[in-house]
């Protein structure tokens, strides 16, 4: 809406926007600030709101005294594997739902939506027993299978929306040039919706990176822990060294915050379709 506004209205809007900015950023600022404060400053009555004696000591401690590098590697492996598999599955699933009319199409859409309402905790006990039978407990493969499953519905919805935006004519031209359907999808359609593909990959990656419940339940080996499992153990092991905690938290957050900032506007397209979780 473009209207002439009074000074008072504009000032009110500016103050409102400022409030939301401070609300959103303060906890993140505090997290990063804490990670740079020396212990004697952290555990004193005098609380400083800016770095007075900044130090990298907590980062050094996290990297040297803990297996953070291992956790990071495991999270990276689980999240990327899940993101790639989900992408391929979602490309085909989304294409089928966007381009074909078939019996059960409406029901498939409803079923995918219904899974979004599914409590994840219901799965914990049965999957624990199922996985122990198939020797998938305490493996990254087990976690990856869960992350794939949990993210398929939303990713299929996203891809379906992006496919629907690609003109059918583009594809038909490829058939005339002698492509079969798979070739047409890979060579013509997929490149045309590159932003959607990036958005889907990042969405699944962030979701897998953030997952805590299954990781805590299913992983015991120090060498297989992902970041949430590793960090939760920090609390008991290092008697709550908040500086170290916040240094580790910052390191775990930065990669996905950057990715997320980049794809946020592509995700909005997917969200308008009303199928979203998290």
């Amino acid at each position: 809406m473009i209207q002439r506004r009074s000074i008072r209205q504009r000032l009110g809007r500016a103050l409102g926007l400022l409030f939301f900015l401070c609300f959103a950023l303060f906890p993140l600022y505090w997290m990063v600030l804490t990670s740079f404060k020396p212990d004697r400053e952290l555990f004193s009555e005098q609380v400083n709101y800016w770095p007075v004696h900044p130090t990298f000591q907590h980062y050094v401690d996290v990297l040297q005294r803990t297996a953070f590098g291992v956790y990071l590697r495991n999270s990276l492996a689980a999240a990327s594997a899940a993101a790639l598999v989900v992408l391929i599955i979602a490309i085909f699933g989304g294409y089928a739902l966007a381009r074909f009319k078939f019996r059960g199409r409406q029901m498939s859409l409803m079923a995918l939506l219904a899974t979004q309402m599914f409590p994840g905790v219901v799965l914990v006990a049965p999957l624990y027993l199922l996985f122990s039978k198939f020797h998938l407990l305490n493996t990254l493969l087990g976690l990856i299978l869960i992350y794939i499953t949990l993210n398929i519905p939303f990713a299929v919805f996203l891809m379906r929306g992006y496919f629907a935006d690609v003109p059918v004519e583009l594809e038909e031209a490829a058939y005339i040039d002698g492509c079969n359907r798979i070739e047409a999808i890979w060579r013509i359609v997929v490149p045309a919706l590159w932003p959607g593909i990036v958005a889907t990959i990042v969405f699944v990656f962030v979701a897998a990176w953030s997952e805590m419940v299954f990781a805590v339940m299913f992983i015991n080996d120090e060498g297989l822990k992902t970041i949430p499992v590793g960090l939760i153990m920090f609390v008991s092991k290092f008697n709550v060294s908040w500086g170290m905690m916040m240094a580790a938290t910052t390191m775990a957050l930065v990669p996905i915050a950057v990715l997320f900032g980049y794809i946020q506007r592509y995700l909005v397209q997917g969200l308008t379709m009303g199928a979203v979780k998290g």
């Binding site: 916040m246 996905i256 915050a257 997320f260 900032g261």
Partner: peptide, 14 residues
Amino acid sequence: FLPWAVPGFLIGMT
């Protein structure tokens, strides 16, 4: 919109 990208366990700790 950044808080939306922060994993639950990191929010909890902070």
